[in-house]
Simulated scan of single mutants.
Amino acid sequence: MPAQANLTPVLTAKEVNDLMASAFPQLNRGGHFYEAIEVFPGGCTVRLNADERHLRPGGTVSGPALFTLADIGGYACVLSHAGPDALSVTVNLDINFMRKAEAGPIDGRCRILKLGKTLMVFDIDIMAGPDGETVAHATGTYSIPPKRTA
């Protein structure tokens, strides 16, 4: 399924990171682990800078760390395209793990499949390693809160 056409971002990657740092200071306490690195029309790229705290026994990045990256990809997309409302929430997130990932940078390329007034549907390819192989793929839905009037 192609990404939804004609979507224009309303926030940059830096603005998304600033908003996430303000709304969720616990996310990156002790480092810069999860971040938006690019926002583009119809999507974004997010990164997990995985270190030893993200590893499970056997030295591979844990499923919960990759799941969090997928969720942050959706959050960065909804913030950057629907507007800077930190109250947007995950409605659904399904993930398939395909191969192991080792510590280091892990990127998620997120596409908005449908952006409506109350919901945003997205998918994200999570890639790692020197060849950028897909280690996981997720699809999800975010709820967009109604616009508040002053």
Rank of each mutant, 00 (worst) to 15 (best):
P2V: 02
P2H: 09
Q4K: 02
A5K: 15
A5E: 15
P9E: 05
A13K: 07
A13E: 07
E15Q: 15
N17S: 09
N17F: 01
A21E: 08
S22H: 12
P25E: 12
Q26V: 12
L27V: 08
N28H: 09
R29N: 10
R29A: 14
Y34H: 08
V39R: 01
V39G: 04
V39K: 04
F40R: 15
P41E: 07
G42K: 05
G42N: 08
C44H: 00
T45S: 08
V46I: 13
R47S: 08
L48H: 09
L48E: 10
A50N: 06
H54L: 07
G58F: 09
G59C: 11
T60P: 04
S62C: 12
G63L: 04
G63P: 01
G63F: 00
P64R: 10
P64W: 09
A65H: 02
L66I: 15
T68H: 06
D71G: 14
I72T: 10
Y75L: 13
C77K: 05
H81E: 01
H81S: 07
G83T: 09
D85C: 07
D85T: 07
V89A: 15
N92M: 12
I95F: 00
R99Y: 02
E102C: 06
E102D: 12
D107A: 08
G108K: 01
C110Y: 02
C110T: 15
R111P: 05
R111F: 03
K114L: 11
G116M: 07
G116R: 08
T118A: 14
M120K: 07
V121A: 13
I124L: 03
I124F: 00
I124Q: 00
I126N: 01
M127T: 15
G132H: 06
E133G: 15
V135C: 10
V135W: 06
A136E: 06
H137L: 10
A138T: 11
T139D: 03
Y142H: 10
R148D: 07
T149Y: 11
